[in-house]
Each structure stands twice: as structure tokens, then as C-alpha cells.
Write a protein that binds this DNA or RNA. Structure first.
Length: 287
DNA sequence: TAAGATAAGAGGGACAT
DNA sequence: ATGTCAGTCTTATCTTA
């Protein structure tokens, strides 16, 4: 089944024709489930075996119901043992399993889409194949993989967001992030300041009008190349601050500390950006 | 109470040694 | 590899309107 994921707030298409890998039927008890299931778990990179595990049953009957020859039976037992061992008991698989169970927890905490989870898993696998996890913690590499996946997909999540929920220090997270990016030679797109505006505006409960004004202002800033080297979140917060102050509707006024909290930057950063922007006559900022 | 000012300190990139 | 430098952001504190 194909479907697209569309942002309900701004209408942006986040994913197009992504395949829904869940089963299309519903079951209310085990019997019904077994009856309807034609396949196993959906295949996913975010499982140590990609969801493609084998299960060798315990039964001593063959497919047509006859008794299995004891010699074959003992072969099957040995296969079963080895199958089991190769599934989880290689250090790599064990590590993946641990990483992906952590990933599952973080997925919920950060509200990540399946596409991001798959991307994260892909990056983590690559990192593991290249032996980049050695000497670093699984959690740090995993958290960094999440950050990379978010950046690649263009979902604004800051290092701080991820560091708070994963209990990895921002510093370590940033280090692991740069390490993976350089070793895997990844090209990370710059964080889109427009997306940052949308995110901060939603967090601060600002109206569409203010958001729209802020986005227009951000376009002007980009045209005049004033954004270089600035933290996009800080810039977004400042632009929203200016827009909210210029909106006559008093419900739209936000203090610097409100927006600082929403964007995860300090008030001082907002002040500095605001000052700079006000000085630029080309932006025609009132006040 | 919100906003502005100032200073010290952290962390990382660019560049030279 | 290691050190220095300019620029950025954060934290903390004090002042101003």
C-alpha cells in the first residue's frame, strides 16, 4: 500500500509513496492472527536481522504430517542450534540488537518517523561495519546516527534535543556526529532556517500570520546572505521575535525568553541576532 | 519585569608550524 | 600532530526603562 505523509500544519510533503509495511488486516486474538498472517514481521533495517529471521520448529512431524526420520531430526536440531547462535550470538548482531532496542525508546521520545528510523539504522549499520563504534559507546554512535538521519531528511532536531533524551552529553554527541560524518564521507545538508521557523513558531504557539511574516523576512535575509555562520535556530527565534513584535495583535507578542526556550537558545543569542538584523536597512524592520 | 549590556569561558574550524 | 586565532554561542551578573 502506498501513501504519502503530509504535514497537517503547513502541507509540506514529508514522504512520498512510502510503503506501509504493516499488515492490512486486523486480528483480535492469537488464533485469528495466526490464521490471517501470511508473512512475518515487516522487514526493517532497524532490526538486527532486518526482520528476516528463520524459525526452525520443534515439531517431529514433516510438512505432510509424517514422522521425521531420527537422523534428519538430529540434523535439524543441530541446524536449529546454529541458526540460533548465528542470529544473536555474534558480537555484531548483539550490538545491533542493543542499539536498535535503544532506538525504539528514542523513537517514541523524539517523535521520529519510520523513515528516520530506517535511515538511522542504515547509518548505524554502516558505522558498525566500518568499526567506528570501537572505543565509543553504542548509545553515542546511535544518537549521532539519529541526528544525521534527521539532518538528511530535513527534520529540525538539534543536538541538544537528542542529547537530552538520550542522556549523551552534547559535546560527546557532536564529536561522534562529526566522526561518523568524516569517516563515512557523508554530505549533510545545512539545516533549513525556514523549517526551523516553523518548528519554533509551533512550539511558541504563534499564528500563521506571524509565521508567514517571519518566513518572508527569512527569505530576505537569505537573499542578502546574512545568515552565514549563524545558528539557524537562534536566527529563526530572532526573526520570529521581530515578526511577533511587529504584529499588532497583542496575543502574538512573545518575550525573548519565550522564544529562547522554544528554540533552545539563550536570550543573549536572540538579542545579538535581533540587533544585527535591525541595523540592516535592506530588511526594513520597524522598531 | 522585560530587555539591554558586559565579561568570561567553552568548543570547534581554519590555518600554520 | 599541535598550537594559535577569530568568530560564535552560553552562562552569569548588573543595569535600564
Amino acid at each position: 500500500m502506498l501513501r504519502s505523509t503530509i504535514c497537517q500544519k503547513c502541507g509540506a510533503i514529508l514522504e512520498i509513496n512510502n510503503i506501509d509495511q504493516n499488515h492490512e488486516w486486523s486480528a483480535f486474538n492469537i488464533e485469528e492472527f495466526n490464521d490471517k498472517a501470511r508473512t512475518g514481521t515487516p522487514s526493517s533495517l532497524a532490526r538486527h536481522d532486518m526482520g528476516l529471521f528463520t524459525v526452525i520448529g520443534r515439531t517431529d512431524k514433516d510438512a505432510s504430517g509424517g514422522k521425521i526420520d531420527p537422523i534428519v531430526r538430529s540434523t535439524m536440531e543441530r541446524l536449529k542450534t546454529w541458526d540460533y547462535r548465528t542470529q544473536i550470538h555474534t558480537p555484531a548482531a548483539r550490538n545491533l540488537r542493543q542499539a536498535f532496542s535503544e532506538l525504539d525508546v528514542l523513537k517514541a521520545k523524539l517523535g521520529l518517523s519510520d523513515a528516520i528510523i530506517e535511515k538511522t539504522a542504515y547509518i548505524y549499520r554502516k558505522a558498525q561495519e566500518r568499526r567506528l563504534v570501537r572505543g565509543r559507546t553504542t548509545s553515542a554512535i546511535l544518537a549521532a546516527s539519529i541526528y544525521i538521519a534527521c539532518r538528511e531528511i530535513g527534520m529540525p532536531r538539534t543536538l541538544k534535543d537528542i542529547s537530552t533524551v538520550s542522556n549523551i552529553k552534547r559535546k560527546d554527541l557532536a564529536r561522534s556526529y562529526r566522526f561518523i560524518v568524516s569517516k563515512l564521507e557523508l554530505k549533510i545538508p545545512v539545516l533549513d532556517p525556514i523549517k526551523c521557523i516553523v518548528r519554533v513558531a509551533n512550539k511558541a504557539n504563534l499564528s500563521e500570520i506571524t509565521k508567514r511574516k517571519a518566513i518572508d523576512l527569512m527569505y530576505k535575509i537569505n537573499e542578502n546572505e546574512l545568515a552565514a555562520g549563524k545558528d539557524p535556530m537562534g536566527l529563526a527565534a530572532s526573526v520570529l521575535y521581530l515578526s511577533s513584535m511587529n504584529n499588532r495583535d497583542s496575543n502574538e507578542h512573545r518575550t525573548q525568553s519565550d522564544l529562547a526556550a522554544a528554540a533552545g537558545v539563550t536570550e543573549v543569542t536572540i538579542r545579538n541576532r535581533t540587533q544585527e538584523l535591525r541595523k540592516k536597512s535592506c530588511l526594513k524592520i520597524i522598531r
